[in-house]
């Protein structure tokens, strides 16, 4: 979901768009549910998606075959498949496509998990202890409008071009999103849920553990999913500037040598891997918060 937005300029503002996306998707799912979990409606909608995708590929094939653009500008689908096989079997830039994807995934996963963890903890503390909120909030508000790309030169200056600056960039892109979602989750905890616990004699600690924590889980997951998308956006940006491996690096490298087929291969791989990770997160979400959107 991250790739549609192009480069990471203002990755965090685009978080809003992505949240909207997620909401739209939820609406669509809701519409499905409203129709009675209909296998029918679902298949019809899948059919629409697949048809449109197929039509786009066909259009692409025709435009490429007609040579509207030069071969270097627009590769044919067949060319892309060829390059894909090449990248998988022979590799590109000394590593197979799988290895390139693996290094990117590792960077994202490390930065993302660290940010998700810390984000939930910091968000909870900010929501519960006013002093913590007042200490951290101005920083968040200050950092929010700065495009993550702007930090790359600094990170490279400070930390070189190893793994650390990339992971840190992802971490700092994702952190505010998770924090802010957790914060709004706690703030949005229904008053009546809190009051029910209070008049059943819950202590502050019990209210936190048994009411607030489970209540914010749905929003935490929303934050994590948006954050994951942003992580990918940041990663590709980071790899474009200071890396010698990874999917983002592949895009840039192939661009240098006008290997448009390989650019397509890298972009499509980024999209697919990003989608798969979001899908995995969604599966976890369904397990952990089955009530999301229902109550």
């Amino acid at each position: 979901m991250s790739i549609r937005g192009g480069p990471a300029l203002g990755g965090i503002q685009s978080a809003q768009d992505q949240a909207d996306d997620a909401a739209l998707q939820a609406d669509a799912q809701l519409a499905d549910a409203a129709r009675g979990a209909g296998g029918d409606g679902r298949w019809r909608r899948r059919l629409v998606s697949v048809t449109v995708a197929a039509a786009l590929v066909a259009l692409w094939a025709i435009v490429a075959a007609l040579r509207v653009f030069g071969r270097a500008e627009l590769p044919t689908p067949l060319r892309v498949v060829h390059d894909f096989v090449h990248a998988v079997v022979q590799g590109y830039g000394g590593h197979s496509l799988l290895a390139q994807a693996q290094i990117s995934v590792e960077r994202v996963v490390v930065g993302f998990i660290a940010a998700a963890f810390l984000g939930v903890v910091v968000g909870m503390f900010m929501a519960i202890i006013p002093v913590v909120h007042d200490a951290i909030d101005p920083m968040l508000q200050f950092l929010r409008p700065i495009p993550p790309l702007a930090f790359i030169p600094l990170l490279v200056t400070w930390f070189g071009i190893g793994e650390l600056p990339k992971v840190l960039l992802i971490f700092f892109c994702t952190l505010p999103i998770v924090i802010l979602n957790t914060l709004s989750g706690v703030r949005g905890t229904q008053k009546s849920r809190l009051r029910v616990a209070q008049c059943l004699g819950a202590s502050r600690a019990q209210t936190l553990r048994h009411v607030i924590l489970p209540s914010v889980l749905p929003e935490v997951f929303t934050g994590m999913r948006v954050g994951l998308g942003v992580s990918w956006t940041c990663l590709v940006a980071a790899e474009m500037v200071a890396a010698s491996r990874g999917l983002g690096w592949m895009v840039l490298q192939a661009g240098h040598y006008l290997q448009s087929g390989m650019i397509f291969v890298a972009i499509i791989t980024i999209g697919v891997v990003g989608f798969l990770m979001d899908f995995a997160l969604r599966l976890i979400e369904q397990r952990v918060v089955p009530w999301k959107g229902k109550a």
């Binding site: 009546s192 616990a197 008049c199 004699g201």
Partner: peptide
């Protein structure tokens, strides 16, 4: 002093039984 609100305000992460026994668990 127990309160019942206009909206049921149940906890969706607990099943019916655990909602009912919530006060006893606390």
């Amino acid at each position: 002093r127990a309160v019942v609100f206009q909206q049921p305000s149940l906890y969706p992460w607990l099943n019916v039984r655990n909602n009912v026994s919530f006060g006893l668990t606390l």
